[in-house]
Amino acid sequence: MSRNQHTKSNEKSRKPIKGGFIRLISGKWRGKKLPVKDIEGLRPTTDRTKETLFNWLMHDINDANCLDCFSGSGSLAFEALSRFARKVTLLEKDKSVVKQLRENLAVLNVDNATVHEGDSLNYLKQVATEQYNIVFIDPPFNKGLVQPCCDALNSNGYLAPDALIYIEREVDLSGLTLPNSWELLKEKSTGQVTYQLYRQG
C-alpha cells in the first residue's frame, strides 16, 4: 500500500536509493508498471487488495474527484486515474517520493492530478477549497494518523455528499472513533491489515 508520511530515506550510504514497481491492474493503463522509491515505511497496496478495493468502487470511480491522503507510491491514486477518475489530489511528505510521483505523472502525461508536498494532517487542518467523492486513507502503520485524518476530513469540509472513504489500517488498531454519519459498507482483513469502505451519510 502506499505509505509515506513520517518516513525516512535510507541513510546507510550515499548510494542511489533502489526501488521497485507498482503495477496498474485495470483501466486505460492496464499492466503498466511505474517505478517507486525504496523508502522505509513505504508499503504499496498489494494487487489483490487493490483489486478488491476497486471492485468495491466499480460504479463510483468514473468521473470521481479523489483525494489520496498519504500517497506514498501512488498505487491507489494512479489506479484511480487509470480507471477514469475526473481528478486526483495526492498528499505526500517525503521529498524524494514526491519527485517520483511527479515524474510518474509526467510519464503518463496526466493533466488532472496534483501532488502537494508536505504534512498531510497540516494540509487537512485547513478549510477545504473543494470536496471529494472518494478519499483514500492509507497511512504508515503505528503512527496514530488514522483518527486525526478522519477528524480533519469530517470537520473541514472535504467530503462531498455521499462521499466514499477507504481506510487501510493495522488490524489491531483500537480506539478508533469515526463520525456517526459514516456508514460501513465493506470490510475485510488479511494478515495484519484491515480494509474498510465507508459512505458519508
Rank of each mutant, 00 (worst) to 15 (best):
F54P: 06
C69S: 11
F78A: 11
L57H: 07
E117N: 03
K50H: 06
G27E: 02
N65D: 03
N55K: 12
K32Q: 14
L53S: 00
R86N: 15
R30S: 13
L101M: 07
I17V: 14
P16T: 09
A80N: 08
A80Y: 03
E51I: 00
K37Q: 15
K50P: 00
D63C: 10
I17R: 08
G20F: 10
G27A: 10
K37A: 08
K33I: 05
L34R: 02
A106D: 13
N10P: 03
C66F: 07
D68Y: 09
A64W: 06
I61E: 00
F70A: 09
K87W: 14
P44S: 01
R48E: 08
L108E: 01
L121M: 03
S26D: 02
L81H: 07
F21W: 13
M58W: 13
A113G: 05
K87V: 10
G20A: 11
V88P: 07
S75M: 07
F54C: 05
L34S: 05
S75C: 03
R83G: 02
H59L: 12
K12D: 06
K95S: 14
K95I: 14
R43T: 00
K28Y: 11
S75D: 04
G41S: 02
A77H: 04
D47F: 01
L34E: 03
L34K: 05
E51T: 06
D60S: 14
M58L: 12
V88T: 08
V98L: 02
A113M: 04
W56P: 09
A106Q: 14
V36K: 04
W56K: 07
L76V: 06
